[in-house]
Simulated assay, not measured.
Amino acid sequence: MAEDPAKAAKEVYSVWALPPDDVRDRIKRIMAALRSEFGGPAFEPHITVVGAISLAPDDALCRFRSACAALSRYPARVSAAARGTFFYQCVFLLVDPTPEVVATKSHSCIHFGYENSTPYMPHLSLLYADLPDEVKEKARLRVEELDKEITGINFEVAALALYRTDTEDKSLESWEPVEVYQLPPNPK
C-alpha cells in the first residue's frame, strides 16, 4: 500500500538564493574571520527566499521545482552591514529589496504556501550567534574592516537552492542541500 503523502514524515526546508562563486568566496572569507573571533557555526552564504517550512520531502522538491521553473536570474545589491536581534540574524549584509528580489520571494512563497508574519528583509547572514548587542556591533564593524567594499557590491543571483534546515539544530550539522536549480538568463 502506498504511503499517503499528507501523512509522510515532514522535515523543515528553506529556499535560498545563492550568490555567484566570486561573491560567495568573498563572503565566506568574512564569515570565517567572524567565526574565528566571535564563534558560531559555519553555513553557506545565501539570501533566504522562503523561510523554514515543514513539508514532506517529495512535496518540498515538487514545490521547489515548480517555483523555479517560472523564474530567471535577477540582480541583487548589498546596501549595508547590519546586526539583528536573534541567533539567525546576528550579523548580516542587507540586500536592497528591489522589485526583482521581492518578486522572487513572493512568487516562491505562493508556491510553498508560505506566509510570513513579518515584512521581508532580504539579507545575507554572516554570523549566527547569540551575542550581546555591544559584541554584535563590534562584529558588524569588523565586517567593514575585513572588506571595505562589501557594501555596494552588485551581483546576479543565478541559482536557487532547496535546503533541509532544522532550525532547532543551532549547530547546523543537520543542514544540507537537497537540490540547486540554475536559473535561466533573464529574457528582457
Score class of each variant (00 low, 15 high):
Met1Asp: 06
Met1Trp: 08
Ala2Ile: 04
Asp4Thr: 02
Asp4Val: 10
Ala8Ser: 12
Val12His: 02
Ala17Asp: 01
Leu18Pro: 06
Asp22Ala: 13
Val23His: 07
Asp25Leu: 07
Asp25Ile: 01
Arg26Trp: 05
Arg29Gly: 01
Arg29Phe: 05
Arg35Tyr: 00
Arg35Cys: 01
Gly40Val: 08
Glu44Val: 15
Glu44Gly: 09
Glu44Leu: 14
Ile47Ser: 09
Ile47Pro: 09
Ile47Asp: 07
Gly51Met: 08
Ser54Gln: 13
Leu55Glu: 11
Ala56Pro: 03
Asp59Ser: 12
Cys62Ala: 14
Cys62Pro: 03
Phe64Val: 00
Ser66Trp: 05
Ser66Leu: 11
Ala67Pro: 12
Ala69Gly: 12
Ala69Ser: 15
Ala70Trp: 14
Ser72Val: 04
Arg73Lys: 14
Val78Ser: 08
Ala80Trp: 09
Ala82Asp: 15
Gly84Tyr: 04
Tyr88Val: 02
Val91Ala: 02
Val91Gly: 00
Leu93Asp: 04
Leu94Ala: 15
Val102Met: 13
Val102Phe: 03
Lys105Ile: 02
Ser106Val: 09
His107Val: 03
Ile110Ala: 14
His111Glu: 10
Phe112Pro: 05
Glu115Trp: 06
Asn116Gln: 12
Asn116Thr: 08
Asn116Ser: 13
Pro119Asp: 07
Tyr120Arg: 09
Met121Val: 14
His123Ser: 04
Leu127Ile: 03
Ala129Pro: 04
Leu131Trp: 09
Lys138Met: 09
Ala139Gln: 08
Leu141Tyr: 08
Glu144Phe: 05
Glu144Gly: 08
Glu145Lys: 10
Glu149Ser: 05
Ile150Met: 06
Thr151Asn: 06
Gly152Phe: 08
Ile153Phe: 04
Asn154Lys: 11
Val157Phe: 01
Leu160Ile: 09
Ala161Gln: 15
Leu162His: 05
Leu162Lys: 01
Thr165Pro: 14
Thr165Val: 14
Thr167Gln: 12
Glu168Asn: 12
Ser171Asp: 06
Ser171Val: 04
Ser174Pro: 02
Trp175Asn: 10
Glu176Tyr: 01
Val178Met: 11
Glu179Val: 10
Asn186Phe: 11
